[in-house]
């Protein structure tokens, strides 16, 4: 008699997709030190972000010497594509 054995896959060692420098554009309205400026980050995710099915979180981590406490998140935009969620499934 054969028994089924449980098997778990430890995915903690898996690496996330890399977003390279060339994927990201950063533009500043003013590059003078200690001035208040508007920062604009644009990037293309290497993997589709399925917003309404799995949830999507984007986290920005800045160096300590950035003073973000006075920063306002002015706009956040995602450029969406609408597609059937299970178009290949029956």
């Amino acid at each position: 008699m054969e028994f089924s054995a449980s098997f778990s896959l430890d995915a903690r060692a898996f690496s996330p997709y890399a977003i390279t420098d060339t994927d990201v554009t950063v533009s500043l309205s003013d590059n003078k030190v200690q001035q208040l400026a508007t920062y604009d980050f644009s990037f293309t995710s290497p993997v589709p972000l399925e917003v309404d099915t799995a949830g999507c979180f984007i986290r920005f981590i800045f160096p300590d010497d950035f003073i973000i406490t006075s920063g306002d998140f002015a706009t956040f935009e995602g450029y969406f594509q609408m597609q059937p969620s299970s178009s290949t499934r029956t």
Binding site: Y39, L49, G71, G78, M82
Partner: peptide, 17 residues
């Protein structure tokens, strides 16, 4: 399903380092 790959974030009043 909404699938996005292009993302843009604008932050104002960030104090330059």
């Amino acid at each position: 399903s909404t699938v996005t790959q292009l993302v843009r974030l604008t932050m104002s009043n960030v104090k330059n380092p």
